[in-house]
């Protein structure tokens, strides 16, 4: 059997990680392809970490944090938003399909949304893999 796709989710501790916990509390089913790494804030996301993930063979990377304006650390997600914009261009240039690197905002109260985000990312990465 072919190896199933493999996605790393970097979730900030205060919004998205808590949102993913809420998905669990609400028992909303989503695919197992995503493995979650807890980070304090999306502001902590060094682009090198994402490069490292692709370098080591990850099929997809999802980074999710607090909605703009809601950052637990006031402005960490703004830093991430800017780094993301630059990194996206760089990955494109390196030939990494844009479907493989996604960023989103999920708050601690958006359990349902987190499941939807995961499903979308898994679908996107699958469609990329199929055409590879």
């Amino acid at each position: 059997m072919e190896k199933d796709i493999n996605i790393i989710g970097f979730l900030c501790n205060w919004c998205s990680y808590a949102g993913a916990d809420l998905t669990g509390l609400n028992r909303i089913i989503y695919p197992t392809n995503i493995k979650i790494v807890r980070i304090p804030c999306t502001g902590r996301m060094d682009p090198v970490l994402i490069m490292e993930a692709f370098h080591n063979g990850a099929d997809g990377v999802l980074v999710s944090g607090c909605h703009p304006g809601d950052c637990h650390y006031t402005e960490g997600n703004y830093y991430w938003r800017r780094r993301h914009a630059v990194l996206k261009r760089l990955l494109e240039f390196l030939g990494i399909d844009e479907r493989r690197f996604q960023a989103t905002w999920v708050s601690a109260s958006e359990g349902k949304r987190f499941a939807e985000v995961v499903k979308k990312v898994v679908d996107d990465v699958r469609s990329w893999k199929k055409n590879e």
Binding site: I8, V37, R44, D46, V48, L49, A53, N56
Partner: peptide
């Protein structure tokens, strides 16, 4: 960042990426 060091996150990334 103590408790979330680059080395710790790198180790985690390696574990998942090699799935």
């Amino acid at each position: 960042l103590k408790g979330w060091t680059d080395r710790q996150l790198m180790e985690q990334i390696k574990v998942i990426s090699y799935c």
